[in-house]
Amino acid sequence: MQAISPQQRGNIPSLTIVVPCYNEEEVFSFCLSELKSLLENSIQAKKISAQSHILFVDDGSRDGTWSLIEQAAQADNLVHGVKLSRNRGHQIALMAGLSCVDTDICVSIDADLQDDIGCIPQMVEKYMEGNEIVYGVRADRSSDSFFKRWTANSFYKLMETMGIQQVANHADFRLLSRRALHSLLQFEEQNIYLRGMVPLLGYKTAQVFYARKERLAGESKYPFYKMLSLAIEGITSLTIKPLRFISILGAVTCFFSIIISILVIIQRFNGYVFPGWASVEISIFFLGGVQLLCLGVIGEYIGKIYMETKHRPKFFIQEKI
């Protein structure tokens, strides 16, 4: 698929806004109203074509989210819906929605609309300038708690140390051109971390900056333990550096063990024996903990290999509207 120059992008692009939803009954009406208003205004201003629409992806919600999507789609041609057969998680639900896109460009955004939808027209403008990917990036994290800021900054530094290409303070609010989306959908792995996968495409990118809003209603779908799980998913899916760190740790531990053993033998010949067993037991527990940690990291990678070799479908679409 050939790149499209800014000059060739003279036609008004068609846009799909992909919105993964999981138990979003409380915020759905607000989300629908805001996104519809944005689309209608953009279509009227001839920034996007009349074929543009919103695609809600129901990720196996347990509340009335799908019923609301059905009602909205039956009442308005701007609304489309996809229902997954079961809950598969945010990243796979987003991939399911992206696989259904048939427009020139698409923008992904969460249903809580904490990301600023006012950036979407700017993203379209960046696309018209020749960019294939446009990232929505938080301008600052002043609205977050100290703990959340510290964990977020630590996470980005850790990912950078691991050699993972990732845009700092960017979640999953981004624009993809048809070409970039086609390339992204060629990734076949089961373990998906889109924030690290999209930069691997290598196409021309741009950024738009915004201030993140407070959640209007409902609960965050990314509490701390899920953020931690996502971080582990990203690290183990995109780099093998933890395995290399384990090898280095093993080599360093062996080196110091040899040095200590030589010192003990020398002291033994000099007639001095180290008294007590406390230091020995501490060493045993420490090395045992290190070994279990290393086995856990190795097990995580082996588990991913196991899941990848099954070649199972990532999701099943139960219904479209």
Rank of each mutant, 00 (worst) to 15 (best):
Y193D: 11
I69Y: 00
G196H: 13
A251M: 10
N77W: 02
V137T: 14
Q114P: 00
I298T: 11
S52M: 03
N191Y: 12
E129L: 05
D140T: 08
T239S: 14
Y156L: 01
L243C: 14
M159N: 13
M162K: 08
Q8Y: 12
I164N: 08
L228M: 15
R88M: 13
C106E: 01
L249P: 00
L238R: 08
V19Q: 01
K221F: 03
G202N: 03
I117T: 14
Q190H: 09
Y203P: 00
H311I: 07
S257M: 11
G299H: 05
G60F: 06
R86L: 04
L94I: 01
L295P: 02
V134Y: 11
V198M: 07
A211H: 07
G218S: 02
A168P: 06
V264F: 07
V137M: 05
R9E: 04
Y127C: 06
T309R: 11
V101S: 08
N270E: 04
K46P: 00
K126G: 01
A168M: 09
I232Q: 08
R312Y: 09
A152L: 12
Y210T: 10
W66D: 07
G60M: 04
Y222I: 09
F315D: 10
I317M: 07
Q122N: 07
F173L: 10
C294H: 10
E160V: 06
C254G: 00
W150A: 15
A50C: 02
I258R: 00
G303W: 05
L230R: 11
S183Q: 15
D172F: 07
Q2K: 13
Y272Q: 08
T239N: 03
I12D: 03
G288Y: 05
G271T: 10
S99Y: 03
G218N: 07
S142W: 01
L181P: 08
E214V: 12
I258G: 03
E132T: 08
S247I: 13
I105D: 02
C254M: 07
A73W: 02
